[in-house]
């Protein structure tokens, strides 16, 4: 049940983000300067931390999505719990790697590229 609940919550969060993303990118219609200003804003530690949250949602939703599609193909249905833990571990590993990469920009005062 948790696999489904997390999938649902991350999915709804991603729909919200998709529209937010389109809004932010639309600053390009006001010219290059407006777009570059918006991008500069998004490189602050606060938004980088939110990016990590976004990555968490994307990773989980994508990996669990693959798990669900496997079930739809009739694969691994009886190993659903093990597959769920694989999704969790993979999500955690990639997220940790991303945190490690982002760390200096979050707390080191560096500017992310």
């Amino acid at each position: 049940m948790w696999a489904w609940l997390f999938h649902r919550i991350s999915g709804l969060a991603l729909v919200f983000y998709l529209f937010l993303h389109l809004m932010v990118l639309s600053s390009a219609t006001a010219g290059p300067a407006a777009f570059d200003r918006a991008m500069e804003e998004l490189h602050s530690p606060l938004f980088l931390a939110l990016d990590l949250l976004l990555l968490l949602a994307v990773l989980y939703h994508g990996l669990n999505g693959i798990r669900v599609v496997l079930f739809d193909l009739g694969l691994g249905v009886r190993r659903q719990a093990a597959l769920f833990w694989m999704v969790m571990v993979l999500t955690a590993l990639v997220l940790l790697a991303a945190v490690a990469v982002t760390w200096p920009f979050l707390f080191g005062g560096g500017r992310a590229g």
Binding site: L18, F19, L22, L25, S26, A28, T29, G31
Partner: peptide, 18 residues
Amino acid sequence: AALAFGIHTLLAFLGVIA
């Protein structure tokens, strides 16, 4: 509508809309 909005942004990058 969201698709049209997104394509509109893409066109801005292409310089079709400026």
